[in-house]
Deep mutational scan, measured.
Amino acid sequence: MDEEYDVIVLGTGLTECILSGIMSVNGKKVLHMDRNPYYGGESSSITPLEELYKRFQLLEGPPESMGRGRDWNVDLIPKFLMANGQLVKMLLYTEVTRYLDFKVVEGSFVYKGGKIYKVPSTETEALASNLMGMFEKRRFRKFLVFVANFDENDPKTFEGVDPQTTSMRDVYRKFDLGQDVIDFTGHALALYRTDDYLDQPCLETVNRIKLYSESLARYGKSPYLYPLYGLGELPQGFARLSAIYGGTYMLNKPVDDIIMENGKVVGVKSEGEVARCKQLICDPSYIPDRVRKAGQVIRIICILSHPIKNTNDANSCQIIIPQNQVNRKSDIYVCMISYAHNVAAQGKYIAIASTTVETTDPEKEVEPALELLEPIDQKFVAISDLYEPIDDGCESQVFCSCSYDATTHFETTCNDIKDIYKRMAGTAFDFENMKRKQNDVFGEAEQ
């Protein structure tokens, strides 16, 4: 370990593993360490099931009705991949897709007046949907046509809207959309967690709705994908990429100290040895004095023996409960997957309800979601602090990732990755940087 590296990475969460992969592909010498004996950090999948019970201090362990412990891979952080989103792009560019198998999530649902409705995925579904009345549908269709044709580089498509100054509230007004449709559009399509976006320039919202539609167009059922064997497969896929390009991995490796000289990182000390480096990437748990708390998320993992009611017996789905429907500031989400994804025993389902904490009784906040899941065989409640770095790391060369937020997709995580890359490399992130180099010394032969 007593060696000189360009970059040392602490923690094998998804953000850290993707950055480690990119740095290795770009010719950097990388050492990647984790104090845990497993990959994934906060974003790991726990197996066998006995391990999950232990982690949540349920000492009696799983009953026999849960089947074989080894058949379970339970995500600690519930997220899906947008089919046309940035993480899929990263997987394709790096060819990490060859280590993973994905399934399309069967449906996306939205909560309205105590019931759940399928988010329409085709024009026919939209016309048949009970989510809105006849005239509302016509106006909504006009709005969707506007979004589909919108091109930020072609003012002819703006229809009198200025993407940089017109607020989204004004765009909704222009198409005369009612409150329910606005809730549905902002939260189930643009996937905002709160209503803060309404008074911001509309460009980002329009682009988010386009991303949803384009992702949906790829597979038809929903815009989301999920990897077989759980999300823990993602960091491992990128760790393989890093290793192929010469990255060194050490799990179960305690970090005793991060060594600084004149305010700059110069190395990491572990078990009496020092590895030197020019730059350091880590998750917040490794540098508690360089991060601040930015809120909390509650996630309740529920094991069920039945599909969720009114989802047409889907073996995977997402449910969004827009905040307006339950008098909150932030949406509540449910991600459900099952034995069909090799993450649970035969006939079992895993539904994870999550939201940003707003009160001193977080469990009560998630109740509307839990009511949709009854009866629940077993619950595991996790309340996590969200951390963000206190500075950009440019001076110390210590670059810290943000905690995983309450969103049900990876777009915010990818933004964090691109942002850290830019601060480390001094140049904007470009997907081309992730391409495997042809015929290089570490390149794998085609399968």
Rank of each mutant, 00 (worst) to 15 (best):
V334F: 03
D75N: 10
E371R: 12
P155R: 07
R292Q: 10
I8V: 09
I300D: 06
G133A: 07
L234T: 01
E106W: 09
P288S: 09
A190E: 00
K329I: 09
G263S: 08
R141S: 05
W72L: 02
S401F: 03
D313Y: 05
A314Y: 13
V161I: 10
S384G: 12
K437R: 11
C282H: 14
P362F: 10
I376V: 10
E125K: 09
L373E: 03
A294F: 14
E233W: 14
L280M: 00
L10T: 11
E16W: 02
G443W: 12
R292T: 14
V398A: 09
S384D: 04
Y224H: 04
E123G: 10
V110K: 11
E446A: 12
E152V: 07
H32Y: 01
L91R: 00
H32Q: 03
S285V: 06
P155F: 00
L14I: 00
V145W: 03
G426D: 12
R193S: 00
M424I: 09
E3R: 00
G113L: 13
K89H: 13
K174T: 10
Y117M: 13
E271Y: 14
Y421S: 13
L92P: 06
Y117A: 04
G186V: 00
N153K: 12
E363A: 04
K89T: 11
Q318P: 01
Y333H: 13
D257H: 01
K422D: 14
D416G: 11
A239I: 15
L216R: 01
G247E: 02
E152W: 06
Y249H: 11
I320N: 02
Q57W: 15
K221Y: 15
P322Q: 12
I319N: 05
E374Y: 11
Q378L: 04
M250V: 08
L91W: 05
P235T: 00
V266D: 15
T47R: 01
S384N: 04
G11T: 01
P368S: 09
C335W: 00
F429Y: 13
G69D: 12
L10Q: 04
N84T: 08
Q86R: 08
F143N: 06
C414S: 12
N315K: 06
V104T: 09
K309Q: 05
C17F: 00
K435M: 12
G85R: 02
T311R: 01
G263F: 06
D71E: 07
P375L: 03
D180G: 10
R328K: 09
E261D: 05
G247L: 10
T12D: 14
K278R: 12
R276Y: 14
S330R: 10
V9F: 10
I244D: 15
F431Y: 02
Y99D: 08
S108Y: 13
E365Y: 01
L234E: 05
V110E: 15
F410I: 06
P362A: 09
A83D: 00
H341F: 15
V119P: 01
E363K: 05
E214C: 01
V110I: 06
A344D: 14
K253R: 10
G160R: 11
R292D: 00
L52Q: 08
L76Q: 15
V343G: 01
I8R: 03
N439E: 15
N439D: 10
S401E: 04
Q236H: 02
E123A: 11
S396T: 12
Q438P: 10
C317M: 10
D289H: 13
N415A: 15
Y38R: 02
